[in-house]
């Protein structure tokens, strides 16, 4: 049984005015609701993009696992229409980019090297194909979001609070 004293930190990112780009934000709300219904402790941060100070939050004593939630780009016609999860490993080498982009691995590096904490971390993604200006999701993305239950069912029991093998 999961240890209910431990905190799940959900960090969702995306732009809710760019159609499917905001699907990760929606998925995060659903996950938060489901896990709270299971009496788990959850803290959700929904942001436009990842920024360095989130690393300090990740390194908090109460945090057992960090769930990054994002949209992943798939080509039109792709059959990769499920929500997917993959475990993230703390990086050894990362290059800076040109703009303000910062990924989950960078935040993990910050948490590890600046605050001495390497929480268990996962990247959960929902497929997206339409990134035009506007609100609402494409049919493919909306369909994937409607199957959060199937996604959680396929994950190991008590995920994400227990050690588990990579999911579907």
């Amino acid at each position: 049984m999961a240890d209910r004293r431990r905190m799940i930190l959900i960090i969702a990112y995306g732009n809710s005015l760019r159609r499917d780009d905001g699907a990760g934000l929606m998925l995060a709300e659903i996950l938060e609701r489901v896990w709270k219904e299971r009496d788990l402790k959850v803290h959700r941060e929904s942001v436009h993009q990842l920024t360095p100070e989130l690393a300090e939050l990740m390194a908090g004593d109460a945090i057992s696992v960090v769930i990054f939630v994002d949209t992943r780009v798939i080509p039109p016609g792709s059959d990769s229409l499920r929500i997917e999860a993959s475990r993230l490993a703390s990086p050894e080498d990362l290059s800076p980019g040109m703009g303000h982009h910062m990924g989950p691995l960078t935040l993990m590096a910050y948490a590890r090297y600046l605050y001495g904490k390497t929480p268990d971390a996962w990247l959960v993604t929902v497929p997206g194909i339409d990134f035009d200006h506007g609100e609402g999701f494409s049919d493919a993305t909306a369909g994937a979001l409607s199957k959060v239950g199937d996604f959680l069912e396929a994950m190991p029991r008590n995920w994400p609070l227990v050690e588990s093998s990579p999911g579907p």
Binding site: D70, S95, G97, P104
Partner: peptide
């Protein structure tokens, strides 16, 4: 970042 964000680096 006035559009969408990037996954990773």
């Amino acid at each position: 970042s006035c559009s969408t964000h990037a996954v990773g680096q």
